[in-house]
Design a protein around this nucleic acid. Sequence first.
DNA 1: ATGGCGTACACCGTACGA
Length: 264
Amino acid sequence: MQIATWNVNSIKVRLNHVLNWLEQTQTTALVMQETKTVDDAFPKDDFEAAGFEVLFCGQKTYNGVALAVRKSQVSAVDDIVFNIPGYPDEQKRLIAATITTKTGEKVRLAGAYFPNGQEVGSDKYFYKLEWIAALTHWVRDELGREKNFVLGGDFNIAPTDADLWNPQEWKGKILVSAPERSAYAGLVQSGLVDTWTLGLHAPETYSWWDYRMSGFEKNHGLRIDHLLVSPAVAKDMKDVWIDAAPRALEKPSDHAPVVMQLDW
DNA sequence: ATGGCGTACACCGTACGA
């Protein structure tokens, strides 16, 4: 069983990339961010025709999240959540559901699009920190309820300097500031395992590259998309990687999928 | 210091991203 997260930067523009990638990789469940479309315009029929059940929580122009599961491998999708319970928010940034596989495994899967924060000290920055605090609170509750839990998404945080191609230029800035990194660590410490720390990875492996200045060709990237899992899931994890191939296609998203393979 | 590129909305440019 394979679970992945991908910031698609517009589901309408990226629809064929996403469906082709799901077909090629045979991924079981995918959470998507920055769908950038209202629910009425989400390409639901295209996902269903490709064999997926899809849930989505979107808005005009910005943000928006979705979750697709392969029907041939999943028998039930329950307890759907749109946005953080108890944290009223116009911005659509969280989706979750409990998935039961045909082999009888049950996993709570959440997909998150963390606020970008724009600039340290800005209103958007404080919203980012507040949003992460609310998410952390919710995750703690969820972990008490379901032993198999996966949180994937665009976290908009590079956890260490090894996750930046040019750490000296990012020092103290948005995506790397100490309060953001500390919020990331706090989220992990609420009872999750950062899957990236379980494997050996080539250095300079990133999940995002700027469209400008040939960022991808030069591998001038950041690693800001992550998969965090409960200990029970970590125990059955076989591998985790970033699939940079879709970033090399025509009209790519600026993010690449992060993928994890489970022993299920 | 700025913009460089891409997307959305809808102006014929602005907001936003990371």
